[in-house]
């Protein structure tokens, strides 16, 4: 059972990571981020149950709250970018380099 949980979290996590690294649209990357966090939450909940540790559960709740805040900040930045009329796309973000 633990092996199953571990493999799902690792799989989910690296799917999210792949989304962030490979996709070009910013929104898709944002989703990838959320996917990674939720994968971690899944394994954390399971382990909390296994070790019957209430703190871990409290941690999961806080992590969800933080992930939400993170999403808010991400969205504001993407909306800002769109207001400037620029594509919400990685290729648009090329000015700063060297």
């Amino acid at each position: 059972m633990t092996a199953l949980i571990y493999s799902t979290t690792i799989l989910l996590f690296f799917l999210g990571l792949a989304a962030v690294v490979l996709r070009r649209q910013l929104l898709a990357m944002l989703l990838g981020l959320e996917l990674m966090v939720s994968a971690v939450n899944v394994s954390l909940v399971y382990l909390a149950g296994l070790f019957s540790d209430a703190q871990a559960l409290a941690a999961v709740l806080i992590i969800i709250a933080v992930a939400a805040a993170e999403a808010v900040v991400g969205l504001t930045l993407i909306i800002d970018l769109r207001e400037q009329g620029r594509e919400a796309d990685c290729s648009a973000l090329r000015e700063l380099k060297g």
């Binding site: 966090v37 971690v40 993170e70 930045l77 648009a92 973000l93 000015e95």
Partner: peptide, 20 residues
């Protein structure tokens, strides 16, 4: 704007790695 976004995505990925 561009730097903020780059910083955000890199930072959040690092945060997620920290979580894992």
């Amino acid at each position: 704007r561009e730097a903020g976004l780059k910083y955000f995505f890199a930072g959040s990925t690092a945060g997620a790695l920290f979580l894992l």
